[in-house]
Nucleic acid binder design. Structure first.
Lengths: 208, 208
DNA sequence: CATTCCATAATTATAGATAATTTTTAGAGT
DNA sequence: ACTCTAAAAATTATCTATAATTATGGAATG
């Protein structure tokens, strides 16, 4: 599978590293040495540095001047922080999206939800989950907000994968269905409060 | 005035360019040519590119691959978007900060408010305004949230400076005082709703 | 007048060298 | 044996020079 031709090398490296960090292949706190990564990708150190900058802005790595970058850790507090930010921003997005929601969009979201129910592993479930949220929120037409939410989803996914790697079973997502039902009935407030509660429960599921 | 010695050159360039963009010295849509900027700062193009990446993550410039970066424009819709995001995130931060607010912190905020009243130009007022918000919200202890809010403040400041450059008079800030009074009285909800309304009024003040 | 083609310019990436800083290693002294 | 200091190694950050890819603008052509 070849990556898009017109993407810069830095963007490709950034995406690959982000995927690895999210998947837990590189553990938190590990140093990322630019020369090694440059060699692995057959590139020079310049695009690697740019990829680092992008990962830093996503909160996946932290950079200390002259000391290199390392994979960001995440504490329980930070997981809660991300969950609360998601609750605040996703409800805002939903309220602005509601006037533009059509039946077709709601059907799309329901399909994504079903795909989540059918998921065999946590990665597939997360992909469907993210699709569900994105489909419902995208019609708000607020690009900056959507990008912020997307970065928070990425952070959430990291937590999800790190704690649940082994034991995981597909949860039939009751909340998603409740949100869809409320939206179909035109009950925006109920949908928004359900969404807020739903997002915050993710932060509460301790990985045991 | 020498900048901090241990900062990377990229960080210095980024800060300087950000200040110029916010101040309106570089107009929206203007191309930023890395070679020229590198020459101006006596640096090479590599740190300039890294500075661009940082500005991009702050939303101050947009980058099109192989076509360079240009100063981001901002529409009325975007100003409203930023205001709504600020309202959502600052109320969240305030609610989490309230348990940690001391009388000393509230006094600090009041002093910042007075400094705003004494401000002779919009830049000084903005600085005091930002200080007011930061003092009240910082005790929430949520670094990711605070950083996001700070970036939104930057975007707000751009709008403020662009529209009000010439004609501006110090508004005695009634909302700030109302927020402080509510906090002193332990009325968290009133403080939060006042803050939300206050932030959104900024987006409504049309220039001219 | 529209279209194609080419020259120019700018961005993006490579490679090697240099400086500065951090980390590690080794050694001296108590 | 332990600690503190000094030298060495490793890594980052930067610069210079150069090549390759892609836009942009204008000229030539149908």
């Amino acid at each position: 599978m070849t990556t898009a031709k017109s993407e810069t090398i830095a963007a490709q490296i950034s995406k690959t590293l982000a995927a690895r960090i999210i998947a837990g292949e590189i553990e938190a706190g590990a140093k990322l040495r630019q020369d090694h990564i440059a060699e692995e990708f057959g590139a020079s150190h310049v695009p690697v540095r740019e990829a680092f900058k992008r990962l830093e802005s996503q909160g996946l790595v932290v950079s200390e001047p002259r000391r290199g970058v390392r994979v960001a850790g995440f504490s329980v507090d930070e997981v809660r922080e991300v969950a609360e930010m998601r609750a605040a921003l996703e409800t805002l997005a939903l309220r602005n999206a509601v006037p533009h929601l059509t039946r077709a969009i709601l059907d799309q979201a329901e399909e994504a939800n079903r795909a989540g129910d059918r998921a065999l592993n946590v990665q597939a479930w997360e992909m469907a989950n993210r699709a569900f949220h994105r489909i419902l929120l995208a019609p708000c037409g607020m690009p900056r907000l959507l990008k912020a939410i997307d970065d928070l989803h990425t952070a959430s996914a990291r937590f999800l994968f790190s704690g649940w790697r082994a034991e995981w079973e597909a949860p039939t997502d009751r909340d998603h269905r409740a949100i869809l039902d409320a939206l179909r009935a035109g009950q925006t407030e109920i949908a928004a409060t359900t969404l807020a509660r739903h997002v915050q429960t993710i932060g509460q599921k301790k990985p045991k």
